[in-house]
């Protein structure tokens, strides 16, 4: 395939990495977007989800927010935010053109997996463990911090991992509405019939996505207080039984 050779040549050409619209600049832009949106979504969503899970209230909402999030097309929401008067496609600091619209969309799409897994994780702490904590004279705050939170952490971390994948994918799609990020390399390539450039951008996006996913999986294993064997997929298969909705792609 000739296209593969051209893609390789594009990737090996230093000129395509440097410069204002080069791969490095776009990569940093997208990483900055992803990190900002993920942190913002965690600050917003996790306290709420953990608190609801601790109280055991609002479960219907917390679990179904994922399903609603999946039905909303990423691209359509981004398009609406960009076309609206606010936030529009104005510049936003280091995030570039349409940066604020993209950030808002990213945070919105990161929230569902965080909320669902945060809630489910807290609810799945066995009730006899909670009773034992009460019996030992722990206050609700102590029980939350020293018993429930550590036990819920693997499921919560799995939600963060899903959110990360989701945010990275959404940040790529932002390019379809002239937003910042690596997707621009892809859309610019396609717009100019330079498919080698489009392919090259896609390769970089896919590779970084896999690296992020592997890193997140490693972090998830590290925070598990009770490692359950070396199987690489147990977190997907075991820790969220019957609520596997939380494990499925959310319109990436």
């Amino acid at each position: 395939m000739d296209l593969f050779a051209e893609t390789g040549r594009y990737l090996l050409d230093p000129d395509s990495w440097t410069g204002a619209g080069g791969l490095v600049a776009r990569l940093l832009e997208q990483l900055l977007l992803t990190a900002t949106a993920l942190v913002a979504a965690m600050l917003l969503g996790l306290p709420l989800a953990l608190w609801l899970g601790h109280l055991g209230k609002g479960g219907f909402l917390a679990v179904n927010v994922s399903n609603v999030g999946r039905a909303v097309p990423t691209f359509a929401l981004l398009a609406l935010l960009v076309a609206a008067d606010w936030p529009g496609s104005a510049d936003f600091g280091p995030y570039g053109r349409a940066g604020l619209a993209t950030l808002i969309a990213l945070v919105l799409f990161a929230l569902p997996p965080l909320i669902t897994n945060g809630y489910v994780g807290m609810r799945e702490v066995p009730s006899d463990v909670q009773e034992a904590a009460d019996g030992m004279g722990m206050s609700p705050v102590q029980r939350f911090r020293r018993v429930e939170l550590p036990l819920a952490l693997p499921v919560v971390a799995s939600g963060v991992r899903l959110a990360l994948v989701q945010v990275w994918a959404t940040a790529t799609i932002a390019a379809l509405v002239a937003g910042p990020g690596l997707g621009r390399i892809i859309t610019e390539g396609f717009a100019r019939n330079d498919y080698a450039q489009g392919m090259a951008g896609a390769v970089v996006v896919a590779l970084v996505a896999l690296v992020l996913e592997l890193a997140a999986a490693a972090v998830q294993r590290a925070v598990d207080p009770m490692p359950r064997g070396p199987s690489p997929d147990r977190d997907d298969a075991v820790s969220v039984p019957s609520t596997t909705v939380a494990e499925a792609p959310t319109g990436s």
Binding site: A169, F190, A209, L210
Partner: peptide, 11 residues
């Protein structure tokens, strides 16, 4: 599923 859709289509 880790690969974003906008990257999968060009591939």
């Amino acid at each position: 599923y880790t690969v974003p859709s906008l990257a999968l289509l060009p591939l």
